[in-house]
Design a protein around this nucleic acid. Structure first.
Lengths: 294, 294
DNA sequence: ATCGAGTGATACCGGAAAGGCATCATGTTC
DNA sequence: GAACATGATGCCTTTCCGGTATCACTCGAT
C-alpha cells in the first residue's frame, strides 16, 4: 500500500511536471521524491509518469490516478475536521424524548434554542411517557429526556425546567364551568373522574391523590396519556386533572378550570440525562443552554 | 497526517472492539496497535475510541470517522485497479477523428468493433477534415484519425481501411440521369461543376484533376465538405464528384451515377495514428482490431 | 564535435519510526 | 483476594525515510 506522502508527492510532480520544483514545493530534496514516486508506481502497479531525462509527462494511467489521489487527499483532510466537530459537540446528533404535554409547551422554544446554539446538530424527537424515556436513557437510545419525576438521581442528572399548576378539565357547558371561579374539593365528590394510571403515569397519580381525596368509586377511566384524558373529557365521559400546559392542546368541547390556589404549582417538568454523558453535543448543549424558558 | 495502516488498525479495532483480536486480524501484536490508534487520535485531534480497561467503545466522533476511514481505504484500494486497467488499455478514453464521408460508411462498424474489443473504453468522436485531423494527431488531441492521404509517413503510422470508387452526383431528373449508364469525360464538358477546395480538400481535388480534364470555367463552387457538395447538387447548382460512400447520405433530390470503370477505386480511407503511441487503449485496439471491414 | 547546463536516478549515511517482547496497571470474576 | 483479562508502557532491534554527494543522460551553444 502507498502512503499519503507518496500521493502528495505524485500530485506535486504531476502539477509541476518537474521533480526539482515539486520537491521544493514539498520542502524536501529531489532524490527522495524520485524514490517516493518509484515506490508509488510499484505499489499501484502501473507507470504514472513518463520521465524522459528532459521532461516529465503524465501517462493516461497517471492522469486517472491523479484524480483519485486528489480525492483521497481531500477526503483525508476533511475527515479529521468533521470528527473534531462532532467531538466538540458543534455537530452531531441529539436524540430527545418528550412527553405529550411538554410537546405543547416547552418543546418548541427548546428546539429553537438548540438550533440557535448548535446549528449543525441534528435532532431526533420521540414522544414517550416518562417511564419509557428513563429506559431509553439508560440504554443509550436517548440523549435527553423531557420528563417528570421520579427517577434515580444516582444514574441521572437533571434540571427543573418549569413548574405549573394543575387544572380541572370539564366538558363545555358543565355546571362547574357555568358557575365559574375556583374548583374546590367538595365540587368534585359527585363527578365522574378520569384518572391517571398509577403505573404508567405514576407521577400525576400520586400528585392528584396528594392534592385531594379521590373517591375511587367515581373513577370511570384510567389512562396514561394527557391527550387521551382530554379527549375523554370532550366526549363527556367525566372530568380530569391535567397540567396547565394541556390547555394549549386546543381541543373543542373542553374547558379548563383552576384549582384552589393553595396547591401551588406542583407539576414539574425536568430535563433528564444520564450522568455518564457520552454525547459531546449534549455536553455542549447543557453548558450553554439557558433554562429560563417558560 | 495519519497513515493508511493507522486507518486499517482503527477499522479493525472499531469492528472487533478489542485490541487483541484486532491485532491478530492484522497479523501483528497488540502493543504497536495501541500506539497506532493513539497516534491516529492525536493526528485527528479527537478521541475516537473509549477504552475502559474492560471494553472498547466508539465515541460519536469515532463513529463518524469510521465511515470516512472506510471510504478512504476503499478508494485507496480501487484507485490502483483503475490505473492498471487504463495502463493495460482495457479501460480509458479513445479520441477518434473522422471525415464526414467516413461517418456514413466505416465509422459505425468500427465503433461496434471497438465496443466489442474494449467494452470499457470511452470513445470521443469529432468530425474533422483530413488536415485538421493531422494537426490534432500531432498535438495529441486525437488518438486515431480516419482520414485520407497525404500525411507524413515518418510521424504517422497508418493502415488502409478501404478503397472506393468516385461517382458523379447530379440533381434528380438531370439529363445524364435519364440517359442512364456510365458517365464519360465528354458528358461533363458543358456541365456546371461543384469542385473540391484545392486547399481544404486537396486529396479529392488532385484525384479529380488526375481522372479527367476539368474545364475550370465550368466550376461554379469550391467547397471542402462532401455534405456541402451534395447539398449544392440537390439545389441544382451543378454536378459534383463524390466518393461512393456519399450515396449513403440519403439526401433527397440527388442521384449518383458511376464513372467509367477504367478509373478503378481511387479513393482511399486510412486509419492514421502517431508513431509515438502513448494511449494504451489505442495500442490494444491496433493489436486486436480486425481491419477487414467492408 | 565538444563542453556545459539541466534533470532525474542511484549510492551511501544518519536519524526517526515501527514492530516485537516483556512487563505494568487496572478492573473483573470466582 | 487470587487469577485472569485487557490495554498501556519501556526497551530493543530493524526498517524506513530523508539528506548529501554523485552519476547518467540529453540538449543546446560554441
Amino acid at each position: 500500500m502507498f502512503t499519503f506522502d507518496q500521493l502528495a508527492g505524485f500530485i506535486a510532480v504531476a502539477e509541476e511536471l518537474h521533480f526539482g520544483r515539486a520537491a521544493e514545493r514539498l520542502n524536501m530534496t529531489q532524490p527522495p521524491l524520485s524514490r517516493q514516486i518509484q515506490k508509488l508506481e510499484k505499489a499501484v502497479g502501473a507507470e504514472l509518469l513518463e520521465r524522459d531525462n528532459r521532461k516529465v509527462q503524465l501517462t493516461p494511467a497517471g492522469t486517472a490516478f491523479l484524480e483519485e489521489a486528489r480525492r483521497l487527499l481531500a477526503l483525508a483532510e476533511r475527515a479529521p475536521v468533521t470528527a473534531r466537530r462532532i467531538a466538540s459537540g458543534r455537530s452531531g446528533l441529539l436524540r430527545i424524548g418528550f412527553t405529550a404535554a411538554s410537546g405543547f409547551s416547552i418543546l418548541g422554544p427548546l428546539l429553537e434554542e438548540i438550533s440557535a446554539i448548535l446549528p449543525d446538530v441534528d435532532v431526533d424527537l420521540q414522544e414517550l411517557v416518562t417511564g419509557e424515556q428513563i429506559q431509553a436513557l439508560e440504554t443509550g437510545e436517548l440523549d435527553l429526556g423531557l420528563a417528570r419525576p421520579p427517577f434515580d438521581k444516582e444514574v441521572f442528572d437533571s434540571r427543573l425546567l418549569y413548574r405549573e399548576s394543575m387544572m380541572v378539565a370539564v366538558p363545555a357547558g358543565h355546571p362547574l364551568a357555568r358557575r365559574g371561579g375556583v374548583v374546590g374539593n367538595d365540587d368534585l365528590k359527585d363527578e365522574a373522574l378520569i384518572m391517571h394510571s398509577p403505573l404508567q403515569a405514576r407521577y400525576f397519580y400520586d400528585l392528584v391523590i396528594r392534592m385531594l381525596p379521590v373517591q375511587h368509586g367515581n373513577v370511570v377511566h384510567t389512562v396514561s396519556q394527557i391527550l387521551t384524558m382530554v379527549s375523554l373529557v370532550a366526549a363527556k365521559r367525566g372530568v380530569a386533572f391535567v397540567p396547565r400546559s394541556a390547555t394549549a392542546l386546543g381541543i373543542q368541547g373542553v374547558e379548563f378550570l383552576p384549582l384552589a390556589s393553595s396547591h401551588g404549582e406542583p407539576v414539574e417538568l425536568h430535563a433528564i440525562w444520564s450522568r455518564k454523558v457520552s454525547n459531546p453535543a449534549l455536553s455542549r448543549l447543557l453548558g450553554s443552554l439557558d433554562f429560563q424558558l417558560d
